[in-house]
Amino acid sequence: MSDALVPPTALPVAPQGVRASGWYGLVFLIATEAALFVYLLFSYFLLASQAPGPWPPSGAPPILSAAINTAILLASSLTAWWGQRGIERGSSPRLVAGLVLSLILGTAFVAVQVHDWMHKPFSPRTDAYGSLFYTITGVHIAHVAVGLFMLACLTLWAALGRFSAKRHLHVTVGVLYWHFVDAVWLVVFTTFFLTPRLG
């Protein structure tokens, strides 16, 4: 019996290509998570339409801090994209810099959000509005925490030289998730801070 010949080239250790299985897996995950936010926001607008008095009961929440926080999160998405574009061109230092900036900005977003939670004139037990506000923003913060963990892992792997212009699917998937987190916040921000001002 003859021995099988093994080619001398190294076998791939990670999936390659823009549309590998990990990319499709994340797309389906995003679809299910987006459905969760649709259900939560539907509950908000349903209760708002049936509220006997003003909605929100305590008036429209202050917008300045939330607007600044929105800008912070959008900036973090931009830096993540900038880093991703760097590794697509073979620049690991640019990827590390972009991910570190995104981590810092994402952490700042969480800190501002927690500070705002502690100074609201209502709590989750005050009324239906308070319950929905803390539930929806809390679920979003949970997604941000997952995203920050992913960015931290990507930063470590990038610093160890795990990615290249040819092999960086993990970066593509992680940054796509971070963009999703940012997009959800835009909807949450519009719901809680803009629509009450539109009557």
Results as ranks from 00 to 15, higher is better:
A14K: 07
I68M: 09
L5P: 02
G130N: 07
I68F: 05
W23E: 13
D182Y: 08
G59Y: 15
G90W: 02
A158R: 14
D116G: 00
A35V: 14
S164Q: 03
K120C: 01
I63C: 04
P56R: 11
V13R: 15
W81T: 13
T32Q: 05
C153R: 15
Q16M: 15
L36Y: 05
R167E: 09
F28V: 06
A183C: 09
L40H: 03
A60K: 10
V188Q: 07
G86Y: 05
L156K: 15
S102V: 12
A183H: 09
H143R: 00
G174A: 06
T107H: 08
D127F: 01
R89F: 08
N69Y: 02
A152I: 04
V187E: 11
S131P: 08
I136Q: 05
I104L: 12
S43K: 01
P93F: 14
P61L: 05
A48Y: 03
M150V: 15
P196C: 08
I72Y: 03
W185N: 03
G98S: 08
S21K: 15
G138W: 00
S21E: 14
Y39N: 06
L40S: 05
H115V: 15
T155M: 11
W117C: 10
R94E: 13
A10S: 14
T191E: 03
P8G: 03
G147L: 02
P121Y: 06
Q113A: 03
P56W: 11
T126W: 06
L160E: 13
Y39A: 13
H119Y: 14
L40N: 00
P196R: 01
F42R: 00
S76E: 07
I136W: 04
R167W: 04
F109G: 04
Q84L: 15
P61T: 07
H115N: 15
V112M: 04
L160K: 12
P121E: 12
A97R: 15
G130P: 06
G147V: 00
A14H: 09
H168K: 01
T191A: 14
G83M: 07
G161K: 05
S92K: 14
L176A: 10
A183W: 06
V144M: 00
F122M: 00
A48D: 07
V18G: 11
F42T: 05
H179T: 09
A165V: 12
P8S: 09
T9L: 15
S21L: 15
P61I: 05
F37W: 00
G83K: 03
I30K: 07
T79H: 04
V171Q: 01
R197L: 14
L47F: 06
L29M: 14
H168Y: 08
L103F: 09
L40V: 07
V188K: 01
S123P: 07
A66P: 08
T126Y: 02
A67K: 00
P15Q: 07
G106P: 12
F189L: 06
A159P: 01
L78W: 12
V184R: 11
V175Y: 10
F109C: 02
A111Q: 05
G25I: 11
M118K: 08
L186D: 03
Y24Q: 11
L160G: 05
R94Y: 08
T70L: 07
W178F: 07
